[in-house]
Nucleic acid binder design. Structure first.
Length: 498
RNA sequence: GGGGCGUUAGCUCAGUGGUAGAGCAUUCGGCUUUUAACCGACUGGUCGAAGGUUCAAAUCCUUCACGCCCCA
């Protein structure tokens, strides 16, 4: 007992009960089998009155965590919670085998219990199981949070997600919705004949995006590897290979700060479709979000943090230069591509300007600083400067911009898509420009990927692709303020155990 | 990186210099249709950590840790 002497009294009491269970037999049995879930029973017998239930003698076996225990002398009510919901059980001393009721009185809220009995309704109409047997299946040593106020401490909710999930239905609902969103997305893409693939997380070069990577080390090969920042270049290699509709839903890793919008690892869906351009992806994105909101929320009206957006109607479309004009009334649009004017304007906004910034980069700095946050309604912003789109195809009529869009809702970027650059010589030039940027101090610039150029030299059919940030989408559809609320196990600094 | 707020019993929270509190939970007793069950009694603390000021610190000061929010 010495190692437990520091434990609090509540745990010590429960541990003593577990010791007693061990002495009287198997304390962790695994031979109980349920045949019903709480939620199913409520649904199936929704319209059955008490009398009808008793006449039919419906015998069920249910199990779950005991979330409430109300003892009234020789009879009690408890609530068992399984993955589908809660069901009430009535235990009467004289209906249970000898000694069971006496044992039951020592069980604690939080214990895992299995029981069998017949369905009835109480005086207040609650569907209940009249137990004719009951067993303690797993002893819970730690007390659950208080029944009324529950668990509200953010840190504990994130660090001990298991407790959060036991206690907070709203939290369970967020993660069910997350699963439904991803399921919907898969079925949408599968219906359009896309093939799901998996590409490496560990890469020799971390390409496909402008971001700092995590590094790791392969011992046997004694080499540095990077965790991927995007799957893009590998997915396009597959387009070259002839799998001309592919997608991947998986984790990306970016070595950046942690905030309500950023987690070092996050989930991205990327899809590539040959013989299509970026406008096809704009249309598909619209259709997918329309269907997703109906399938997951049952409505196309999405309310996020007090704002309501209609996913049922066509989304707005504006160009980057439009956005600059709209949100900067004093901006002289005749000088939208005048480097000196752009530099001066950036400085006025307090934006740090580097010597190697071209007109496109300067435009995007202004757009990020003045436009993004105002894009509340779902909006496709198109015609991104080619300078900041190193993997995008140049626009045929205006090579200053590329055939690219980003999609914003509530001031946040949700998706990024473009017609892919499939000219290997142009791509090689873009990589060289990235390498120059890197040399000039931009540690988010891309490296030159020789193999990717080689792949393009075999010929990549005209293609368009999209990336959708799953976590941010889930935040929107679950009205969650923080990315941590939609990640089961968000990144946290290490906890101190003393 | 900067700023603000927070950390007190298992949980939710009071307590702004003078004997650490409440509700729920736990423990014990009572109760065969409860719904935050109820009634009675009891119990539970390194006040995030370390240092400082003071006759006296949960409370004031400093540093640190962790969390939340905002900004870069």
């Amino acid at each position: 007992m010495t190692e437990e002497k520091d434990e609090n009294k509540l745990i010590a009491e429960r541990r003593a009960k577990l010791d007693a269970l061990r002495e009287s037999g198997n304390a962790f049995p695994n031979d109980f089998r349920r045949n019903a879930l709480a939620g199913q029973l409520h649904q199936t017998f929704e319209s059955h009155e008490d009398e009808a239930l008793r006449d039919e003698h419906i015998k069920v076996a249910v199990s779950g965590r005991m979330m409430a225990k109300r003892v009234m002398g020789k009879a009690s009510f408890i609530k068992l919670q399984d993955r589908s919901g809660q069901i009430q059980i009535r235990l009467e001393r004289d209906r249970l085998p000898e000694g069971v009721y006496q044992s039951f009185k020592k069980w604690d809220v939080g214990d895992i219990v299995g029981t069998q009995g017949e369905l009835f309704r109480t005086q207040t109409g609650e569907l209940t199981v009249m137990a004719d047997s009951a067993r303690l299946l797993t002893k819970s040593l730690r007390p659950l949070p208080e029944k009324w106020h529950g668990l509200s401490d953010q840190e504990t909710r994130y660090r001990q997600r298991y407790v959060d999930l036991i206690i907070n239905e709203s939290s369970r609902e967020v993660f069910r919705t997350r699963s439904q969103i991803i399921t919907y997305m898969r079925s949408f893409l599968e219906a359009a004949d896309f093939m799901e693939v998996e590409t490496p997380m560990m890469q020799i070069l971390a390409g496909g995006a402008n971001a700092r990577p995590f590094t790791t080390h392969h011992n046997a090969l004694d080499m540095q590897l990077y965790l991927r920042i995007a799957p893009e270049l590998n997915l396009k290699r597959l387009i070259v290979g002839g799998f001309d509709r592919v997608y991947e839903i998986n984790r990306n890793f970016r070595n950046e700060g942690v905030s309500t919008q950023h987690n070092p690892e996050f989930t991205m869906m990327e899809a590539y479709r040959a013989y299509a351009d970026f406008t096809d992806w704009i249309d598909m994105t619209e259709a997918m979000l329309h269907g997703m909101s109906e399938a997951v929320l049952g409505t196309t009206l999405v309310t996020y943090q007090g704002e309501t957006f209609d996913f049922g109607k066509a989304f707005k479309r504006i160009t980057v230069e439009d956005a600059i004009r709209i949100y900067n009334p004093e901006f002289d649009m005749s000088k939208i591509r005048d480097r000196d004017y752009l530099v001066e304007y950036c400085k006025k906004l307090g934006i740090a300007v580097h010597d190697n910034y071209g007109e496109g980069k300067l435009q995007i700095e202004i757009f990020d600083a003045t436009g993004e946050e105002h894009l509340r309604e779902p909006t496709f912003v198109t015609h991104y400067p080619t300078e900041v789109s190193p993997l995008s195809r140049k626009n045929d009529d205006d090579p200053f911009v590329s055939d690219r869009f980003e999609f914003f809702i509530a001031g946040r970027e949700i998706a990024n898509g473009f017609s892919e650059l499939n000219d290997p010589e142009d791509q090689a030039e873009r990589f060289r420009a990235q390498v120059e940027n890197k040399a000039a101090g931009d540690d988010e610039a891309m490296a030159y990927d020789h193999d990717y150029i080689r792949a393009l030299e075999f010929g990549m059919p005209p293609t368009a692709g999209i990336g959708i940030g799953i976590d941010r989408l889930v935040m929107l559809l679950t009205d969650s303020a923080s990315i941590r609320d939609v990640l089961l196990f968000p990144h946290m600094r290490p906890e101190v155990f003393d």
